[in-house]
Design a protein around this nucleic acid. Structure first.
Lengths: 155, 155
DNA sequence: TATATTTGCATCGCACACGATTTAATCGTG
DNA sequence: CACGATTAAATCGTGTGCGATGCAAATATA
């Protein structure tokens, strides 16, 4: 590609990823609003619905988010009575996060949300195979980009 | 897919997009720090390097960002002397954004940044065809998700 | 066992995103 | 021309993201 072309917006790979990410959050919003959730809060619930009682650290490792993002976010969720925060008896540094009845019950109401987005796409002639391939590609990029920057021999 | 499976984090398409978007921003950061730019500011420059003197509105339409995000962002860039803001004489409501010498000159220094990310991926055996396909898919999703929600006959 | 290091979480400051609202300029219609 | 509707920016409030820093508990090491 010519040097002049490289900086055109339409030739950037970063921009469509950034935009689609925001557009998906936007598409989810009306559904999440009904449940009183934000998108990152919904992600925390996804994690806890799979395995309840995780530490802040473990939630962060699954979502690739640090505690400086998660701590206040989880506190807001506690205020909304979606979960409880308890210091672990084994290790006083660790905060264990447990869903409340209310948090558990949201699962049923949230179940249809991912399908809604998928339907929007499929209705516009997006091929299911495209979705699968996209996810596969992105997952491999996560593995590359989320690598612990300490581990490789960085000169 | 079984209902139980649908809400597993690993089966979400939204999560990898959200994560990769953040990881790319993170990967760009050290390069952009050298230029004193944030990632959204870099996007504004990409637009203006292609066509200088656009209105806030037009920049927003290209980046899919509203003025409530762009106005303060552009003001910060003005403070950093990357651009100037002038009310249009034709239409006093419109603010025209023009790059300064400093803003124009950053283009050369920024030219290598997208290639850096690409190289990181290619070094990890990502196929160039995957990148192209990914972009193509995401672009089509943008067209679907960014549609003006007023235009369709929404009952 | 005393001390240095590491770890888990929290706090602070800054910069987005974005819904909702405000203000001022322009446009459309009669 | 009058005046309501529309449009372009800006402002406000809330909620992320994240680098930097702080702090206390746990662990490693002398």
């Amino acid at each position: 590609m010519k040097k002049e072309e490289q900086l055109k917006l339409e030739n950037q790979i970063c921009f469509p990823i950034y935009s689609v990410s925001r557009l998906i959050t936007r598409a989810y919003k009306p559904h999440l609003d009904k449940l009183g959730l934000t998108y990152p809060q919904y992600l925390v619930l996804l994690v806890l619905w799979e395995e309840n009682g995780l530490s802040v650290n473990k939630i962060g490792r699954k979502l690739l988010l640090n505690t400086n993002t998660l701590s206040p976010l989880i506190k807001r969720m506690e205020k909304n009575e979606l979960l409880t925060r308890t210091r672990s008896k084994d290790d006083e540094r660790t905060v264990l996060v447990d869903l409340t009845e209310k948090g558990i019950n949201l699962k049923e109401k949230a179940a249809s949300i991912p399908q809604e987005l998928l339907n929007t796409l499929l209705n516009e002639d997006v091929e299911p195979s495209d979705v699968i391939l996209l996810k596969k590609t992105l997952d491999s990029w996560i593995n590359i980009l989320a690598e612990d920057p300490e581990s490789p021999a960085d000169k």
